[in-house]
Design a protein around this nucleic acid. Structure first.
Lengths: 348, 348
DNA sequence: GTGAAAGCGCTAACAG
DNA sequence: CTGTTAGCGCTTTCAC
């Protein structure tokens, strides 16, 4: 009796069809030199048996897989979600599938997954490293597994990289705020260990200094880039004796937290407080007033990263690329001259 | 000379350490009966060589993998994103990784991925089928690969299932709307082929009839559950000669689209139009007024599904489970008695 | 406690 | 055009 969960192997098909396993293999992988009669026969038997090739065996034999490893720091961040989507689209076209990992900004978890991917001999990896210093990518690279860094750089490993021009985005956002006369601008950004965090901070500081303003360290917060910490940071900023009149937020989660803090403090945007952030999400035009942001071409970044990776997988040996995509400023109504709060304070 | 991308194999380690491959294997998989001296030696050599076991080979030999396949219909839907997160958390704990696929509500794509998973001999699959009639899951099941359906049922295959009590959620939401005196309630829900779509519609209709109201077919729209179609459906509903005074939306993407349509039509919530939807997302309290919804315990659903799956992978043969989790009503300010529009119309 | 050897399912020379 | 054969890297009896 046939065991229920026993899947037929290539030799079962060969036997049934009265041919060798080599012939079956040739038919199934679309090899050209097979007679039509045998081809039909093999196909028929394979279908009848419900045969499906064992990819684990094939992968072992060919020393290749059709798996792309994707490491993001937080799958719940819509920014990464869109990226996953882009990567998946391109990968699917080429019949690759995605091994998805959430590093959670935790180097240990990142390390585990990178090793897992190496052990699984994935064809390539796209990663958004938790830190520029992440060394495990080096191991992948040395093992001959192509890697492309996305959104953040891995300074320790010379790999293809695709990123937003973070500094420019931050610079323009800050300039926009400054143009309304703001001088006390609070900045909430992610860790300096990540490329995006560091470069955004740099853009912010440059824009401030360029406008002849001296950034106040009291108004700068470096946090884990999530809603909760964004909320807390914004709340503490807004609760100071001399609160900022405008807020610069380092990503969409931080913006969300900051907006909730503004809600908690019952401040009006932009009269009491202006706010400008990163990433453009559908809900941002739903709120009143709509949020001004620097939009990232996320899908495009994911697409290009995947295409770069695919080329490497196919053996491309060109020198390392570093792609910088440009932000688009989405000027809406969340920024304006400081009025209410200042007036309120003066009146009080 | 050693090739750059040649990873050392177990026999390299064995040779260097002067032992058999069997011993190396025993040491590396933590097998008990090995002398301490050999164990140390093997570990030392392995580390020195930067050896990493080839999981493809191991998987072939053991006929098992540490891969969980996860099929969702749209990774950009925050609902699924949270689910992915939950699944990943539990899987990671048990050292499993995720093979992620986006079916895009496209049965063909779903089919491709299911076959890929079968070919890769994943340990188990968690899926949100594009249709209750999806038959490919049957193939997995027959091949001895445990499957658990989430959010939606697969009527063709007897597998563990974890879902929201969709009908109840829809029923309560509708009742809430009815309690404000609404009679013309527009409903925008996903395809009837999915469990969630069908059951939500059922809950809606039951609540209407229970209140002595006759659902108007003109006010019901079945769409692909995304923002764009949600927008179009809502817009067409609101542009009718006799528009609804309240909207019932079938998921968060549809709610988003509907809110944008309301914005386009410059209607006031809830005076001109009330709205109640599904899923609770951070931005929903940021908009003015905050949206009333039935929240799903998404993380919990993902967690339980994964635990059910893990049990099956470990050989659990209990009868099939069907878990129904309860929604929580988040009553906020987006529903109220119809005023403005009706008045406006009467005045005109 | 350790090694020799078989074999998981497949593909790719190499013959014929 | 087709079959024979070796072997990918690993685990696991089976002997010793």
């Amino acid at each position: 009796m046939k065991l229920i969960n026993q899947q037929p192997s290539i030799s079962d098909v060969a036997e049934q069809a009265g041919v060798s396993t080599a012939t079956v293999s040739r038919v199934l992988s679309g090899h050209p030199h097979v007679s039509d009669s045998l081809r039909d026969k093999v196909n028929g038997v394979a279908r009848a048996l419900g045969y499906r090739p064992n990819r684990v065996a094939r992968n072992l034999r060919t020393q290749r897989t059709q798996l792309i490893g994707l490491i993001v720091s937080d799958i719940q961040n819509p920014f990464y979600t869109s990226m996953v989507r882009a990567v998946e689209d391109v990968a699917y076209q080429q019949q690759y599938s995605l091994l998805l990992c959430n590093s959670d900004e935790d180097p240990e978890k990142e390390q585990f997954y990178i090793e897992f991917m190496r052990d699984e001999r994935v064809a390539g990896v796209i990663a958004s490293p938790t830190s520029e210093a992440t060394t495990s990518l080096q191991a992948l690279h040395e093992a001959g597994i192509p890697v492309v860094a996305i959104d953040r750089r891995s300074s320790s490993t010379p790999v293809d990289t695709v990123m937003l021009d973070h500094e420019k985005a931050a610079f323009e956002l800050t300039q926009h705020l400054v143009s309304f006369g703001h001088q006390r601008i609070g900045a909430i950004v992610g860790n300096m260990q990540t490329t995006s965090g560091a470069e955004r901070m740099k853009g912010f500081l440059n824009a401030m200094r360029g406008a002849g303003l001296t950034p106040d360290p009291e108004l700068i917060r470096q946090i884990k880039p999530n809603e909760k910490e964004g909320y807390q940071a914004a709340l503490s900023l807004l609760s100071q004796a001399a609160p900022p009149t405008a807020l610069f937020t380092g990503n969409n989660l931080i913006s969300m937290g900051a907006l909730k803090a503004i809600q908690t403090k019952q401040l009006r945007i932009p009269d009491d407080i202006s706010i400008a952030g990163h990433d453009d999400l559908p809900w941002m035009t739903l709120i009143q007033p709509a949020l001004t942001v620097a939009a990232q071409p996320i899908y495009e970044m994911g697409r290009q990263a995947t295409e770069l990776l695919m080329a490497r997988i196919q053996g491309d040996t060109e020198p390392v690329h570093e792609l910088r995509l440009q932000p688009s400023m989405m000027i809406r109504q969340s920024c304006g001259p400081a009025l209410g709060r200042r007036n309120g304070v003066h009146k009080a």
